[in-house]
Structures are given as C-alpha cells and as structure tokens.
Amino acid sequence: MRFLYTAAVLFLFWLALSGQFTGLLLGSGAAAALFVAALGRGGRALPGPVFLLRLAAYLPWLFWQIVLSGLDVAYRVLHPSRPIDPRVMKIKNPCRTPLGTALLANSITLTPGTVTLDAGPEELVIHSVSAEAADALLAGEMQRRVMRVEGTPDV
C-alpha cells in the first residue's frame, strides 16, 4: 500500500516533468517510478494525506511569516547602523514526532529574526538576531500552530 502510494506520487512527478503522453514515455515513467519506490522500501514513509491537508492549512500563515522576516532582514541589512543584537538560547521542543520537529525547526528558521542551530527530541537551540525576535518565539504561537499540524494534543 505504502509502496503503491510512493510509486503513484513519483509517477505524477514524472508526468509533470515530461509533459508528453506517448506510450513509450508513460511506460518508462511507470517503470522508473516502480523502480525508485522499490529502492526506497524500508525507508521513512511519505507523510499521509491527513498531515498534508493540515499542512496546507498552515502554509498561508508560514508564507506571511516569510514575507515579514524578509522585510525584517532587509531593514537590518540596509539600516546604516546595522541594528542587530545576536544571542543564543534554548527552548523546549513540544513536538513528539521527527516530522513535527523538522517542521518546527524549518518554521523557526523562516520566521523573523530566529534560526534553529540544533534540533533534538527534547530541546531546540535557537540563534536570534534581536531581543524582540526571541520574545516573539517564546510567546509560543508558532509551537501551537505546528502542534496542530502534527496532531499532538496541547500540553
């Protein structure tokens, strides 16, 4: 089942890349998809459809954060006095799955003023470029949103 799901996703990707629907290309695409899916057996599964739907609901907010952080960085870069005040801190990791941790670490890197230095199952090491950015992360809104995507109950 998982094998077929992986192969189907790979085959759709092949179709998007080739864009030609002759028998030969479809056949070799299907063969390649099955081959690669067979190679990937025993690896980690692709995320399921429920996770992907919740992720799709999360993405607009993340995109808005990316725009804000781009503006924030541009302001700090172009300001003549270069107003940065870097610090390193540790926060608790509320996620229970590797996928959730990866999403949280990625989101922290994309939000204004903070970058994930190290992500473990218990805590995350964060580098923040200013005090405001650190406070915004400690307020915990992002952690709540990521946990909703991950599906763990609020602690």
């Binding site: 781009g70 390193v88 994309l110 204004p112 230095l117």
Partner: peptide, 13 residues
C-alpha cells in the same frame, strides 16, 4: 551566525 539570517530568509523570499 548572523550571516545565516539573510541567507536563510531574504534569499528564500
């Protein structure tokens, strides 16, 4: 570490 910030964000944007 502070150079990472423009690299990771402004560039993605």
């Amino acid at each position: 570490y502070s150079r990472i910030h423009p690299a990771g964000k402004a560039d993605t944007l």
